[in-house]
């Protein structure tokens, strides 16, 4: 919502919009009527389908961000956004495995279909316990073991609580992957077209990825700097994910803005595997008074549903 932004942000956006429009008219001249199917592998940039003012459906490149203007170099990315401490609250009562968070995150970070910074697990603590869907990003722990074990300082904890990876420093020893108890980290096992993106690398965007290095969810600091929330937050149709600054005690899922402390205390928020002492920055609200039955989450392609075949609940479901 434009009107909900601070004035300076408004101005910046306006500036962006103007620069966009000037650039756009040039692009539009070439792309009108050019409804060419796009090869997803060799996509030059993300495309959006729009209506031209004369009623033609056209595909135009999505907002080309002027990366140099906002570029945060790997060195600069060690500094957190001042006076902030970012937290995420995930309301398990609302999640129905719609996977929009996963898809938008993958798109924004140029990830291949199988690689997910945000994963959705089907959790069931015991056979009797109720199963529930659990979206899991990187927890950006306050005591990050992954950072502790890194031999070259390629991954670091910032003052704003975000844990980033500099893939220009990473030697790919994968020690951090064994150090992370939440399986948040992924290795770029091979070169792929997804790693070739024409934009300058910044640890804040994690794009482009690099073969032989580790990558993970980055809490989208590039978006935050622009006054926007991470892609997973804005993508969720259910408003499952709240994001905000713990220091100002405000989190929002886009629709609803609420005090972080109030949300956590009133809904008995918790952190996953608290006893490991890693102090995650991601909190969960327990899956009580659910908005959807858990079965709604199986409204997915087979290759997704197959993932959960070992969960006791699913096994039982198949038996009946």
């Amino acid at each position: 919502m434009d009107d909900s932004l601070q004035n300076n942000k408004n101005n910046r956006r306006k500036f962006l919009r103007i620069s966009l429009l000037t650039g756009l008219s040039a692009v539009a001249a070439k792309t009108v009527f050019a409804d060419i199917p796009v090869d997803p592998e060799n996509e030059p940039g993300e495309m959006v389908t729009l209506l031209s003012p004369d009623g033609q459906l056209v595909k135009v490149p999505k907002e080309k961000i002027n990366y140099m203007e906002k570029y945060i170099s790997p060195e600069a990315s060690h500094q957190g956004i001042p006076h902030r401490k970012f937290v995420m609250v995930i309301d398990l009562a609302k999640c129905k495995n719609a996977r929009k968070c996963v898809e938008h995150c993958q798109k924004a970070h140029h990830l291949p279909p199988q690689q997910e910074f945000m994963k959705v697990y089907l959790m069931q603590e015991s056979e009797e316990a109720a199963p529930y869907w659990m979206p899991k990003p990187c927890f950006h722990c306050d005591k990050p073991l992954c950072v502790s074990v890194c031999p070259v300082g390629a991954t670091y904890k910032r003052s704003d609580g975000i844990v980033l990876i500099d893939n220009e420093r990473c030697i790919g020893c994968k020690f951090c992957m064994t150090g992370c108890p939440y399986s948040a980290r992924q290795f770029n096992w091979a070169d792929s077209p997804y790693l070739h993106v024409d934009q300058p690398y910044s640890p804040e965007t994690s794009v482009p990825g690099k073969e032989g290095t580790v990558s993970k969810c980055d809490f989208c600091p590039d978006m935050i700097r622009d006054g926007k929330m991470p892609h997973c937050v804005t993508a969720c149709p259910m408003g499952v994910i709240y994001f905000g600054d713990q220091l100002e005690d405000i989190v929002t899922n886009g629709d609803e803005t609420i005090r972080f402390s109030e949300l956590i205390t009133s809904r008995s928020g918790y952190r996953h595997l608290e006893d490991l002492g890693t102090k995650p920055s991601v909190y969960y609200l327990p899956p009580v008074n659910r908005q959807f039955p858990v079965e709604r989450g199986f409204d997915q392609p087979d290759e997704i549903n197959q993932r959960y075949k070992d969960v006791p609940f699913v096994k039982k479901m198949h038996k009946n």
Partner: peptide, 10 residues
């Protein structure tokens, strides 16, 4: 409301 980083808190 008070202004937050991303939105206004009622």
């Amino acid at each position: 409301y008070v202004q937050g980083l991303f939105s206004k808190l009622k």
